[in-house]
């Protein structure tokens, strides 16, 4: 029986165990994954039908609902969700979360980094891709922030992306980075990606997305697993 979806390209993804990122050491599987003939369980998924209950939206600069605006460099993040053959993937639920412009997350576990919170910025948003596979968020550029992996460790500025696309097989959670970040070389989470795939996580500055006197524009396309090639 032929597979419906092309294989997960393990060579393009990080390994499970990447010891420079210390938390992977005890949280990675030690047995080989077991291959499976894809069934309806794997070729279906929540993307098209599931409606998230939260009431936030794609404008993170105002969706805190305070009436105020988030502080930071206003930024438009847009792009298309595609499969490996370049086909747009409509109806994909795209959810994002991020630190504020100072690098501080609005999360109860973030207590170590003495950067200010922004009461007008929750750092969460969602949208669905259009028929062309396009998503679009208005947010502020997140700041880098320190973490405990090793001495003086700092994460490059990034936005977390979750994609509930066509199926369980295409499930993806990843992080989008901004161009030319000096912290790339020092970040084991970014470096865990095989070298040939790292550029795929970096947005491109796009002046055609930038809005005059308003916000800078970044473009970032996301590619999910495509269909298997049928002979």
């Amino acid at each position: 029986m032929t597979q419906i979806y092309a294989p997960r390209a393990h060579e393009d993804h990080p390994p499970f165990l990447y010891s420079d990122y210390k938390s992977t050491v005890k949280r990675s599987p030690s047995h080989d994954l077991i291959s499976i003939v894809q069934t309806l369980t794997e070729t279906t998924g929540p993307g098209p039908a599931w409606v998230d209950l939260s009431d936030d939206d794609a404008d993170l600069t105002t969706n805190a609902g305070t009436g105020g605006e988030a502080i930071g460099q206003r930024s438009i993040i847009t792009g298309r969700v595609l499969d490996e053959d370049g086909n747009p993937l409509p109806d994909t639920l795209v959810e994002i979360w991020q630190a504020n412009a100072c690098g501080r997350y609005m999360h109860w576990r973030e207590t170590a980094f003495p950067a200010p919170l922004d009461p007008n910025f929750l750092g969460v948003g969602q949208c669905r891709t259009t028929d062309d596979g396009e998503y679009r968020f208005l947010t502020v550029k997140p700041g880098p922030y320190p973490w405990g992996n090793h001495p003086n460790a700092w994460r490059p500025a990034h936005i977390h992306f979750s994609l509930l696309g066509p199926s369980i097989a295409t499930r993806l959670v990843t992080q989008m980075y901004f161009p030319d970040d000096p912290l790339f070389a020092l970040d084991p989470i970014f470096q865990s990606v095989p070298e040939h795939g790292r550029d795929r996580l970096i947005a491109t500055y796009d002046h055609s997305v930038t809005v005059e006197n308003w916000a800078l524009g970044y473009r970032w396309d996301i590619v999910l697993r495509g269909m298997a090639v049928t002979a």
């Binding site: 990080p14 979360w97 959670v173 590619v223 495509g226």
Partner: peptide, 27 residues
């Protein structure tokens, strides 16, 4: 694959703060 073929976007960790968005009350 067609000429527009492109590689899969690599996975990254959800990190410690995903509950900001991904698992709300009642989900």
């Amino acid at each position: 694959m067609s000429s527009t073929a492109r590689g899969q976007t690599p996975s990254q960790t959800v990190g410690p703060y995903f509950t900001m968005r991904l698992s709300g009350e009642g989900e």
